[in-house]
């Protein structure tokens, strides 16, 4: 039997524009998801440890194939105050989603068919990044949204004290600079698509801060810590002409 109750349903919203459906790997230690985005330029890794759920019970390994498009609709209409519970019995073909509004006591139940998902599993190597910079998540979202109104990609440059997001396009150029207190092993410059950063920054509500791990010419890591876990977004850089 599997039963998990989750209070940060906003996590679903953060990944719905990147992934249509995914296997949720349920273990006694917690729930994990690792999947390439639809255009195969990013990888989303989510880990939610058992301790972050009240309650959490999983007595055998279970892979639930879940449509995030459907899950998003369910969570969206439940509102912010609702908790989401996932239940499965010995039949792996279906699972239950239970939405509970604590204020009104309203309970909505769904019986959902597990999807068979053809998912490629990528090995993510351990990387020593040249810079690991933590900034307020709301500032990061503001910068990404603002620059993306007019421009398409952003060059991230980091120095000892500042991280600079600069961008140029047909209409001209723009940049945003933020102070940080992180250690750098050397200067970094990498260019990535703003559209994806805007998507990643939808996880802003999950955490006050976001950590950017950067090295030239390797995927950038954008990480949001959540209670008893994390949401990580790896994004392949743009290289050369």
């Amino acid at each position: 039997l599997f039963h998990a109750r989750f209070e940060q349903a906003g996590l679903v919203d953060a990944i719905k524009d990147l992934i249509q459906d995914s296997d949720f790997h349920c273990r006694d230690s917690g729930i994990a998801l690792r999947n390439m985005d639809n255009s195969q330029v990013a990888v989303v890794v989510i880990l939610l440890e058992a301790g972050g759920f009240l309650p959490y019970h999983c007595d055998r390994r279970l892979n639930l194939g879940i449509s995030l498009t459907s899950l998003t609709k369910i969570v969206h209409y439940a509102g912010d105050e609702a908790t989401l519970a996932l239940k499965a019995n010995d039949n792996p073909d279906t699972f239950n989603l239970v939405l509970e509004c604590l204020q009104t006591g309203c309970i909505i139940k769904y019986d959902i068919k597990s999807r068979d998902i053809d998912q490629e599993h990528l090995e993510i190597p351990k990387t020593d990044y040249a810079a690991t910079i933590t900034i307020p998540s709301a500032e990061f979202q503001r910068i990404c949204r603002n620059l993306s109104q007019l421009l398409e990609s952003v060059a991230n440059e980091a120095s000892e004290e500042r991280i600079k997001f600069s961008s140029s396009g047909d209409i001209g150029s723009g940049s945003a600079t933020l102070r940080h207190n992180s250690d750098l092993t050397g200067p970094i410059a990498l260019t990535i698509s703003l559209k994806y950063l805007v998507n990643f920054s939808k996880a802003t509500a999950l955490s006050y801060s976001v950590t950017l791990s950067l090295s030239s010419e390797v995927p950038q890591l954008v990480e949001y810590k959540v209670e008893s876990g994390f949401a990580r977004f790896y994004f392949a850089p743009q290289i050369g002409e």
Binding site: Q40, V41, L122, E152, S153, Y234, A236, G240
Partner: peptide, 14 residues
């Protein structure tokens, strides 16, 4: 504009 790389060119399948 640079060329967008695929993530699989950095992360190999298991």
């Amino acid at each position: 504009q640079g060329k967008q790389r695929m993530i699989s060119s950095f992360f190999a399948p298991k």
